[in-house]
Design a protein around this nucleic acid. Structure first.
Lengths: 221, 221
DNA sequence: TGAATCATCTATGTATACAAAAATCCGAAA
DNA sequence: TTTCGGATTTTTGTATACATAGATGATTCA
């Protein structure tokens, strides 16, 4: 896909293992690789024009991150979560995102504020255009901007990690242009509450946002 | 923890890569491998009686987990954090542990309750005996028992991950028998508050515990 | 003496080969 | 027909070899 080529072009001297890891991560988070799908080493090796060695390294790292799991049988699979597991993962995300919103509200700088606003502008534009792929990217950027606003890269890291793991499940929510628009609009209240710089308000607002997101996600999974 | 050694004995047909990964993780979390230390592939390979391939896989996975980092020069190193970084990591741990304590207090079962008590008994015994290694293991088990009491394996997973990353820094706190005893005693209040099944009390108690732990950690780092 | 360039050498990333384990398939017997 | 056993095939895990990038050291020139 085009995105893979882009990454390769932007960073031509990345190792093959890293390229493969990023490509697979991208495909999984967008939903091109469906949960439960098996990834076989030889197939990927030939697809990426590499040997099994860098492929193995990429799969191993993605497994360590929880994006892939090694199933009961041989082989690694895109992590597949049932309703109960999704509920647990969302509970954890819920806690982390709420903490991020609280801290972000406390530490908000002008720069971070403008980054969040810029990301939200992209969300609105993509939603209006009905461009699903662009919206998915912009939505990720929006949440990343909030994580970044905590000023704590470790908080941001775990929040991102959960976001990646739930990517394919959340992505299913966005089927129609209306889905995109309603999602983008729901950001507005969240932004207002974070910008209020009141940590309780921000935290509660993020909890509402996550709870709603979970409800929508459960509907399609 | 002893469990790692046990796992190796119990599970002799684990892959070499997994054995190496667990061994290195153990050595890092106990502090045998100091932060900043370089790990070279050939040295580890000969030390574990294996080739570079499984060593590389282990290092790659540990890097993906944040326990190792690839430095500016060639090679991977045990992650080394300055005061600012430690502060950020502890802030994130602080949030996650508080959430764990709150959820654990809400969902406490008789089984989990007894597991926490058993782990604490081990802590007290090891502290009384002045057995530092045993205390480190028991202390990990104690916190793991709390994570497990959330009933949410994903919460437990991230909490464990932070615990591993900070292992070598926290380990330095425990120099004398008195350090062990005072740590074990500080668990008592935490247990009482979690067992109160009041989520706010439990969460605040854990926040106090983590804040105190951070202060002690900063003193020796 | 110092700096710069070149050479050497070490470590890393990748490819390939091989062995062992597991899954699948096939046939035979109940 | 079903099930059990064995053979076959696929796939994984590990070892080894090789090429290249980066580090180290030496030599020469200023």
């Amino acid at each position: 896909m085009a995105k893979i080529a882009e990454v390769q072009e932007e960073n031509p001297k990345m190792s093959a293992a890293q390229r493969i890891e990023q490509s697979l991560m991208e495909e999984i988070s967008v939903g091109d690789l469906a949960p439960g799908q098996r990834l076989d080493e030889v197939g990927l090796a030939s697809r990426f024009g590499a040997s099994r060695t860098p492929v193995r390294e990429a799969l191993s790292r993605l497994t360590a991150q929880g994006v892939l799991v090694q199933g009961e049988k041989r082989g690694v699979f895109v992590a597949e979560y049932g309703r109960e597991e999704l509920s647990q993962i969302f509970e954890a995300m819920h806690e982390i995102e709420a903490a991020c919103a609280r801290i972000a509200a406390q530490r908000l700088t002008l720069l971070k504020r403008s980054e969040i606003e810029a990301a939200q502008a992209d969300c609105l534009a993509a939603a209006q255009a009905g461009d699903r792929a662009a919206y998915l990217r912009a939505n990720e950027a929006f949440h990343m901007a909030i994580y970044s606003a905590t000023g704590n890269p470790y908080m941001a890291e775990i929040a991102s990690e959960f976001r990646r793991r739930t990517g394919p499940f959340r992505a299913k929510k966005f089927a129609t242009r209306e889905d995109l628009i309603s999602s983008a609009e729901s950001h507005q209240a969240l932004i207002a509450d974070i910008f209020s710089e009141d940590s309780v308000t921000a935290s509660n607002s993020m909890r509402s946002h996550m709870a709603a997101s979970f409800v929508e996600t459960l509907k399609v999974n």
